[in-house]
Simulated scan of single mutants.
Amino acid sequence: MTSRPHRRPSLFARLPYWLLAILLLFVIGLWAITANQTYADIFRTLSGGVLTTLWVTFVAFIAATLLGLLVALARTSPIRVLREIATFYVEIIRGIPILVFLFYIAFVAAPAMVAGFNWFFAPLIEWGLLPQASVRGFDFVWRAIFALTICYSAFIAEIFRAGIEAVGRGQIEAARSLGLSRFHCFRFIIFPQALRTILPPLGNDFVSMVKDSALVSALGVQDITLLGKLSASSSFLFFETYNVVAFLYLTMTISLSLLVRWLERVMDTRMRT
């Protein structure tokens, strides 16, 4: 009795059902925006907030990643003072809600920074070499970026620390015995191996920041959430407006999640080869 040849399942059969359901929702949302004039008008109104949301997210995430890496290096430093300061920073920042920290940066830290700038450069300001800074000149978009940077740097620092400590101490000692400096040891030995551990949670934090960027609407930043709130308040089309708001956020977050999964598979393939 001959066995039937094994057939490879089709691409449609291999797609996960949750992804098919999301694609169906995306098609329905896109159809509603293109076929319904009310949804089309709302989408046109909110589309300006997409750029603001992406701008705030990308700038804050890049800055938070760099700051988080520095904090993680301090937490894993052999110098105790650096470890204690970095640990204090992480524990304090992670214990404050993001919305509270946004208000604190916007209405407490920003005026203090402006006052400190004017005090430190007072001679140059008196001589006319520098203009006097004002709180009104400190744009709320940059206050929001600064707040998100500090908040997420504490969480990203823990991600980097976990990835660095996952690398075996024997490899680090072997690299040091071969004459590599601490910088080259980190660049060629620690970071390439830690990146595989770091990437998934780092991608999740990026997706989370896209969602948490909606909190900047509390400061009057004209992102998707604020424009949706203003549009719904003026038209009373709350159902239609927040459907479009949810559609825009889902499109961005799901796309980024799929991109992170693809990067994980690429890195796994390269590590195995």
Rank of each mutant, 00 (worst) to 15 (best):
T2N: 15
G48E: 09
G137M: 05
R83A: 10
A35M: 11
V27Q: 07
D205L: 12
R83L: 12
K229W: 06
D139W: 03
R187C: 04
A157Y: 00
V207A: 04
A86C: 05
D223A: 11
L82N: 02
S181Y: 04
L129G: 09
L195A: 13
V141Y: 07
L263G: 04
W55Y: 12
S181E: 03
S47I: 09
M267G: 08
A110Q: 11
S153G: 11
K229L: 09
L226V: 02
F58P: 02
S255C: 13
H184I: 01
P78F: 11
T253C: 13
A246G: 12
L73K: 06
F191D: 00
T253L: 00
D212R: 02
I85K: 03
L202R: 02
L202E: 04
Y152T: 09
S213R: 07
I125P: 06
A60F: 04
A144W: 07
P5N: 08
L69K: 00
A109G: 03
Y39E: 00
S234R: 15
F155L: 11
L51S: 10
R14I: 04
Y104D: 11
R4Y: 10
I150Y: 06
R94T: 00
R8C: 09
A110G: 02
L178A: 13
S153Y: 07
S217L: 06
V90G: 05
D223H: 05
V135F: 12
P9M: 11
T253W: 09
T225Y: 11
L178T: 14
P97E: 10
I92C: 12
R75D: 13
N243L: 14
F155R: 14
S217G: 06
P123H: 10
F146P: 04
T225G: 13
R44L: 10
L202C: 05
W127P: 01
F155E: 03
R161W: 05
R4M: 15
